[in-house]
Design a protein around this nucleic acid. Structure first.
Lengths: 190, 190
DNA sequence: AAATGACCAAATGAACAAATTAGTCATTAC
DNA sequence: GTAATGACTAATTTGTTCATTTGGTCATTT
């Protein structure tokens, strides 16, 4: 079978988005990178935005795989959710595409990019929601609204990992784990 | 004694910053609003930014007063810190100046405004830090890093009040109080 | 039938002109 | 004499023009 042109286009676009961002990537560039006529792109995708959407859909799939690798059924819910969050935020921190996208959202506020980031966040929360619901069902943790809990946990991790570093030296993984246990599981109360 | 010109200028600037934002406020406008010559402004302040700084310094003082009013020594630390946070975020939510400033920081990214918001956040965290340290000393809550704890609590509240509302119906005050107790004091663990 | 790139209308941004602005300072008012 | 002023200026911002670039189409080629 000949080369999969759609795949070529997706890879070219992903590379270009990662390197230059969404807005700065031109369709001519993608066509050239993919070794394909520009028109060909439009036989597979109806717009530039649709390419980004498809790339992010597969990104979300990758993140899910990554998250699942972090889960170990022998460990407690507490340990698992911590590992999932760390792994996902590590992913976000180390993958060119996500870095560029978050940067573009903050600096340019490109709408298509905002939309797509929203989608990633929702996917993460949905995934965590599932894990939390299971833990509640298993009786491992107290009754709680899984969506709000997932939301608060994610925001807390982002605050500890991304926001804290803006003004202070980074907190060690081990330390974050301790903080997380203290705040969310044991509680500050005596 | 004649009218306090410096105060007139501060009030005019505050009004204009609240109405149009920092960047969109001109010194001519402030002078006109304050009924003084533009040159007079520069006998009290060395720049537009210094006016903003002074206004924010007094804003921080107001917030501190507001926060102190929320504290009731008969209540538990848990209840007090919750009341302080709610009161401060209520303040931020309902005061024209803070609304405009946060909006301008997000939309325009004006540097002087970013600096000043940073300062407000630091002041809030410092204040909370003190309350937390006291509670630790009193043995009311577990040993913890007061600064990180204050930081995480503030971020959590902002997430619950501002970020959650972007996508969901707002959470009731009473509900936020419950969530806060659950996550930070009792912990999810059984 | 699939792929292509010349083509087009719309969007962008470089370049320049005009207007506005923060801050100064010689003059004025008291 | 000194506190206040607003006309002035250098610098920045804004509006405008217009050539270039861009996303997307489609007649032609393979």
């Amino acid at each position: 079978m000949a080369v999969d042109r759609k795949q070529l286009i997706l890879e070219a676009a992903k590379k270009s988005f990662s390197l230059f961002g969404y807005k700065a990537t031109t369709m001519d560039q993608v066509a050239k990178l993919a070794n394909v006529g520009k028109g060909t792109i439009y036989t597979f995708f109806k717009s530039k935005e649709e390419i980004l959407d498809e790339i992010v859909t597969s990104l979300i799939k990758d993140m899910k795989t990554e998250a699942e690798k972090a889960v170990d059924p022998n460990l407690s819910f507490e340990e698992n959710i911590h590992r999932v969050l760390l792994r996902l935020l590590e992913f976000r921190k180390s993958h060119q595409l996500t870095i560029k996208l978050f940067q573009e959202e903050k600096e340019l506020g490109t709408r298509a990019v905002s939309d797509v980031i929203q989608r990633v966040e929702k996917a993460v929360i949905d995934y965590m929601k599932g894990i939390i619901q299971e833990a509640v069902d298993r009786g491992e943790i107290k009754e709680c609204n899984p969506e709000i809990t997932a939301f608060v946990m994610l925001k807390t991790y982002i605050a500890l990992i991304f926001d804290w570093e803006k003004q202070h030296p980074p907190i060690e993984k081990e330390e974050i784990s301790k903080l997380f246990r203290l705040y969310f599981f044991e509680g500050l109360g005596k």
